[in-house]
Amino acid sequence: MAGSIRRHWKRWLIAGVAAVAVLCTAGPYVYINYVQDKPPAALSLDDPRGSDSSGSSRGSGQGVEGSWRVGSGSQAGYRVDEVLFGQNVTAVGRTEKVTGELEIEGNRAVSGSFTVDLASVKSDSDQRDGQFRGRVMNTERYPEATFELTEPVDFGSAPAVGEQVSAKATGELTVHGETNSVSFELDAQRTADGFRVNGSIPVTFADYGIEAPDFGGIAVEDEGNIEFLLAFDRA
């Protein structure tokens, strides 16, 4: 009798362990693929916020030369790939707390910069946000990320309202107290009373003294992107 009970107990134990293993594997898969919201699409000029292409607006007849500042409708943040309990996911965090300025002469942006308030960046996870502000970015000590042009950006020509042009930007990106030279493609779109600029800056975390998180079933890739969509108004 005792031997029979032990055999039954072992079978139930093995079955229980197997069930837990299945739940641990299937649970994250089901949640990530069927329950969790998909990450927002990359920022682009297709985003309607901050856009006004109606030719009747007060600034439509003006040129683009002069001083500009980052206005409402602007946003910036990060996009990075994660492995969450064995499942591949994309983490996205954003903020609208972005400031900056730009100086245009002819068809070239001759100087400019923008600054992102990192402490205000939010994703779809409070836990991720706490890690981002704390052990990852230490926003108490390094509250901002800044990009500043070091070479003029030549757009070739001033686009008509609603049209887009592309160019290459080169400058210095400062994150986590470290500064590196970066180059990337950006797109600009003329609006009725200003223009918008969109781009994505690749970031290798080690270049900025940032350790990619790897804890509690969450591992983050060594590289990510800083996305931005800036709406400029006359300064």
Rank of each mutant, 00 (worst) to 15 (best):
E185H: 03
T25F: 12
F155T: 11
N180L: 07
R135Y: 01
F228R: 04
T115Q: 12
E65Y: 03
R11F: 12
F232T: 10
T204L: 07
I226N: 08
V153R: 06
E101C: 00
E140S: 12
M1N: 03
S200D: 02
R69C: 00
S4A: 09
L45E: 04
A231K: 08
E172I: 07
V80E: 08
Y142T: 05
I201D: 05
T25W: 12
F147I: 09
D81H: 01
D46R: 06
G27M: 03
G71T: 07
D187R: 12
F215W: 08
D207Q: 10
G177F: 00
V64G: 06
D129N: 15
R7I: 12
D129L: 13
K10V: 15
D187V: 03
D37Y: 01
K168L: 09
G77Y: 09
D233M: 05
I32D: 11
E82F: 08
S125N: 15
E105C: 04
V98F: 09
P39G: 11
Y208F: 12
K38D: 14
G194D: 04
S4D: 06
A109F: 05
K38N: 11
D187F: 02
E151M: 06
A192M: 08
Q62A: 14
E178A: 10
L186A: 11
F114A: 11
A18Y: 03
G171D: 10
N88G: 01
F228E: 07
D52N: 15
R6A: 14
F147V: 08
A91F: 08
A2R: 13
D233K: 11
V175I: 15
G61N: 11
Q127I: 14
F232Y: 14
Q127R: 11
D46C: 01
R69S: 14
L23A: 14
A42G: 11
E65W: 00
V30M: 08
G216K: 05
G27S: 09
K10L: 15
R133C: 00
N138I: 01
V182D: 06
T174M: 07
V83I: 14
S113T: 06
R11H: 10
L43V: 07
G59N: 09
E221R: 09
S56V: 13
R141L: 02
Y78A: 06
F184Q: 02
G93Q: 11
S74G: 10
S113I: 04
Y142M: 00
G71F: 01
I14P: 01
F205P: 04
A2N: 12
A145S: 15
S54N: 15
S44N: 04
Q164L: 05
E103K: 14
K122E: 15
W12S: 13
T139A: 02
G130C: 10
Q87N: 15
Q87D: 10
